[in-house]
Amino acid sequence: MTATASPGTADGPRPAPQGPAPRHRPGAGGGRSEGGVLNVFAHSFLIIWVVMAVGPVLWIVLSSLKPTGDITGSPFGLPTGVEWENFTTAWTEASVGRYALNSVIVLAFSLTGTMLLGAMAAYVIARYEFFGNRAVHYLFIGGLMFPVFLALVPLYFVMDNLGLLNTRPGLVLVYIGYSLPFTIFFLTAFFRTLPGAVHEAATIDGASHTRIFFQIMLPMAKPGLVSIGIFNFLGHWNQFVLPRVLNNADEENFVLPQGLASLMVQQGSYDANWGALYAGLTIAMLPILVVYLSFQRQVQAGLTAGALK
């Protein structure tokens, strides 16, 4: 995996380049012969894909406002009336509120844990010489190579033996464990680029290692932490496979993606209907979309940096 890693290391330390808009670049004039035709061509393709990307999501959001009769009767049309009841049904009876709360709780701990433990390990690996340094580094990076499905069955029983199966702390620990390889890989590269002089000065001043880490190095690493933090935030919030297997016993404890998937399966049978499902999806998507639109540059940078594993 080392070779794949190389572009990541190259990009890592910078908060992944979000290239400046090319049109500001100065340059010599060019021919304008094919410009017009290509421009129409380019734009029509680009617009088609805009419809593709937004269409299904928009359809769900619009449908969430429709009475159930409209949804099955005229799925293509605009809503005949606005049915806010879908949202209350989704939030209470279909437990979407509960699932969202579970997700928030799990995320609060798993993200904090991942960032803290990941930064600690990465910092030590990056900036301290000790016996086994490389071995530990490769042990962590090696985890990037294994598909999670290989570990799934044994993991289930390891969790059970530890009494962690179907528990929230268990899920948090697993999220942390499976996020560590990439987090450490990314942050190690980042910590290595930080200047050493500050560190030395602090040491001479008698600051302890722990203090240097928390008060000096962590703040300096903020751009890197933000990138990987966004990456992990979305990764944990959207996680489906791990809770599906390791947190599947009690619907009360489902996290959001898992709960929505189960709503879809039992659709129509008990206390849910299509309108409520669409409302649930909308509830689940909106906060993420708001966050994304507010911080789209950082989000794009964080996630594409993440791709380069």
């Binding site: 090319p22 340059g27 004039g29 894909w49 805009v50 990307a53 993606p257 979309l289 639109l293 789209q296």
Partner: peptide, 27 residues
């Protein structure tokens, strides 16, 4: 003033195109 230029609204397209990436795969 340019040798090559991006289309108008490139930033907008990128925002929209990237959108599915922030949604949960279950959703």
């Amino acid at each position: 003033s340019e040798s090559v230029g991006g289309v108008r609204g490139a930033a907008f397209y990128k925002i929209v195109y990237f959108l599915p990436q922030v949604l949960s795969v279950a959703i």
